[in-house]
Amino acid sequence: MADKTSTTETVRDEAEEQEHAPNVPPRPADRDSGGSSAPSMHEAVASKIHVQDLNFWYGAKQVLREISMKVRAREVTAFIGPSGCGKSTFLRCINRMNDLIPGAHVEGEILIDGRDIYDADPVMVRRRIGMVFQKPNPFPKSIYQNVLWGAMINGYRGNKGELVERCLRQAALWDEVKDRLKDNAYGLSGGQQQRLCIARTLAVEPDVVLMDEPASALDPIATAKLEETIRELKSRYTIIIVTHNMQQASRISDATAFFYLGELVEMNKTEMLFTRPRDPRTEDYITGRFG
């Protein structure tokens, strides 16, 4: 296990750190300045998610160690790393999905807009932080019902047809399904099912959308469409995507975090992380020397 001090807590924005960080320990003086050369457009963007010293255990096994990071609003943040590095587990901490697993235990805090989600009602946390899973998993209902269900259980009172259409359009699926909204969702192809799952997630109007390897079960064409959809969603949502595919991370993300053996090794603007990695482990991984 790599020692703790090598974990790089990456904060790319000085001003933002000051404003958000009453409980953040002072940063080490020797911090690499590579990340703080962020272009000025980033200065205006607020940090949406602030994770501080997160540790996570499955039973006695510690899966995440001292994770700290900030995720900016209306950006795509990619989590990369070899299998078993904890990136999916970390993602599932952000919407408290791990609460459902017996024996799971979390320490540390995850602040969303400054509020600790572990002090909040998990139902309301998940309602604000949507999730798209690795395997497309629509409900065995009609396409229409799939989109609508989450909104209805959260007390949606607006126009149902409009909501369904808007969400399907946002997920770039409307034109393909508008004539068969009453058909069962399992009649769709894998890529369409995954975009339906995105539409379903958007229907509850979340702030943050978490995606756990959403393209890993899709063919290259469906993947390209999904990536296009993700790029378009960025203007309205904060998106975190876990991916095995480094090309995908570099294509769609603004920031990238590299996880290894349960630690956050490095986080930076995507182009910086891929062109000038600071940690040798990151470099080894992105150049294909392991992983």
Partner: peptide, 12 residues
């Protein structure tokens, strides 16, 4: 996956 995706939408 059905359970998880339903919970992830904010269902009780």
């Amino acid at each position: 996956g059905i359970r998880e995706s339903a919970f992830a939408l904010g269902a009780t």
